[in-house]
Computed example of a mutant assay.
Amino acid sequence: MNTSKILAAAALSLLAVAGANAETYDGVHPLTSANSRAEVQTGAVAAARAGNAYGDAADAGVEAVASTTDRTAVREQAVAAAHNPLQSLDRRAFYRDQVPAAYSKPKVSFTRQAAL
């Protein structure tokens, strides 16, 4: 019984050795660049300063936006939206896209008043 186990282990180890030698190693491939180290560094600096050449607005430059809304009106709208507790409520999160009545505009204020 022991000899059959030893022979089986020897056969498996021979198969493992034969499978391990199936691929050859050619070493590290030689460098095939014609540029010197200084030329590569200069090109890298130029590419880094050029920015993203593949971006959507790479050639657009600075674009001015003309707004007709008053700055205070925009600020008031932003403050009102920030204080609205139901601002981020999404209808798609509810059954049949119906917002329950419990989530309608609250009748009480969520802000606290200082006691006198």
Rank of each mutant, 00 (worst) to 15 (best):
L86I: 08
L86T: 05
Q77C: 11
S36A: 06
A34V: 11
A82Q: 10
A81D: 15
V65P: 14
N84I: 11
V65H: 06
V65W: 15
H29Q: 13
H83V: 14
S67A: 08
V40T: 11
S36L: 08
A47N: 01
L14Y: 02
Q41F: 00
L15R: 03
G55A: 15
A60K: 07
A18Q: 02
A16G: 12
A48K: 01
V79Q: 07
A60T: 14
A18D: 00
N52T: 13
A73S: 09
D70I: 11
V74S: 07
A20R: 07
A64S: 11
P30H: 03
L31H: 06
Y54M: 13
R75M: 14
N21A: 12
G19H: 06
V65L: 15
A50H: 03
A18K: 00
A16S: 09
A60C: 11
N84W: 06
A81K: 08
L31N: 07
N52S: 12
S88V: 13
G55H: 10
A60Q: 05
G43F: 01
R37V: 07
A20K: 01
N84E: 15
A81F: 05
L14I: 04
A81E: 15
G51F: 03
A38H: 06
T42W: 15
A57Q: 12
L15C: 09
D56K: 14
V17H: 06
S88M: 09
T42S: 15
V17P: 01
N21Y: 12
A58Q: 13
S36I: 05
V28Y: 03
G55Y: 00
G27D: 11
G19A: 10
L31T: 06
N84G: 09
D59V: 12
Q77N: 12
A60D: 06
G51I: 02
N84Q: 04
E63G: 08
E39T: 02
L14S: 04
E23V: 08
T32Q: 13
A50T: 05
P85Y: 03
T32S: 13
V74T: 14
A78M: 14
N84V: 07
D90H: 09
S13M: 14
G43M: 02
V28C: 07
L15E: 10
A64E: 13
L89M: 14
